[in-house]
């Protein structure tokens, strides 16, 4: 990864981002705002599953309300994240915390896709069988904690980077 970071740091795109000092803070701000949409969309869906909010709409309606926001915001995070990697390759690619964040993110995204799939196959899946409520509660809580871990790992990237040799 060191070699990749070294090559990337020398590209025109990277040098341009490094030159314009306002780009990284601005893109980081957009990254946080989009993260906010992702996190809160998942949070509201979680509350609906737990019957703590959104009693006015069905599970399918709740998903239709929030999942598109989540996917579009994730796309914004992907683009802004790529800009940050190109602008600061050493801080990210050569940093174990960055890869931990990517691993956690992969699990969280797979969970979101899995959730959407179960709902499309069987709209009543998350509302049926009161005996399963405990499992459902654990799943919602785990998912929330998983996104929290993505954010924590993201913030720790700033504190664990290995400077170029």
């Amino acid at each position: 990864m060191g070699a990749l970071a070294e090559w990337l740091a020398g590209t025109q795109a990277s040098l341009a981002i490094q030159d314009m000092l306002w780009i990284v803070p601005t893109v980081q701000t957009v990254h946080i705002l989009a993260m906010s949409v992702v996190m809160s969309s998942m949070f509201m869906i979680g509350l609906r599953i737990l019957n703590l909010a959104g009693g006015y709409h069905t599970m399918t309606e709740a998903a239709r309300r929030f999942l598109p926001w989540m996917w579009w915001a994730l796309a914004v995070n992907l683009i802004t994240g790529l800009v940050l990697i190109i602008g600061e390759p050493w801080r990210t690619l050569n940093n174990p915390t960055f890869w931990l964040k990517m691993a956690l993110l992969a699990v969280a995204v797979a969970a979101a896709a899995g959730f959407e799939r179960t709902l499309r196959r069987d709209a009543g899946f998350w509302e049926r069988r009161p005996g399963d409520r405990k499992t459902v509660r654990v799943l919602v809580a785990t998912n929330f904690l998983l996104w929290c871990c993505v954010i924590v790992a993201g913030r720790w990237i700033a504190y664990t980077d290995v400077p170029p040799p």
Partner: peptide, 18 residues
């Protein structure tokens, strides 16, 4: 500091999103 800052980020994304 990094840990408190991380919790601050979790809190603020929920403030703004909700």
């Amino acid at each position: 500091f990094p840990m408190i800052e991380s919790v601050h980020v979790i809190a603020l994304v929920l403030v703004f999103g909700t």
